[in-house]
């Protein structure tokens, strides 16, 4: 699998650490109800299809949102997480 780091270009999967779907971008407020925190930490849509997923390019230290198909493994695009988080 090859993923394009926005700064370094297309790289092999072994240069990255993956950390689950992009739910991570939407952290609840500190005082949000426990259900929101439960959903944030544990519950996942886990789609068989397109998924936006958090990847970290280890050599350059960039978190990237990778849009990827979990059935075909096709990579449809990457965005620096800093931009996606805005």
């Amino acid at each position: 699998m090859r993923v394009t780091c926005p700064w370094c270009g297309e790289r092999d999967r072994r240069e990255f650490t993956v950390q689950g779907d992009e739910t991570a971008l939407r952290r609840p407020h500190r005082d949000a109800p426990p259900e929101d925190w439960h959903a944030y930490i544990h519950l996942r849509d886990n789609p068989a299809g397109r998924l936006r997923e958090m990847w970290y390019h280890d050599p350059c230290g960039t978190w990237i949102v990778v849009e990827r198909d979990t059935v075909t493994h096709a990579v449809h695009g990457t965005t620096p997480a800093r931009e996606a988080a805005r």
Partner: peptide, 13 residues
């Protein structure tokens, strides 16, 4: 392989 997948196949790393 450490990425979400339903493909029942993996990669070389």
């Amino acid at each position: 392989d450490f990425y979400a997948s339903y493909a029942a196949r993996g990669n070389l790393p």
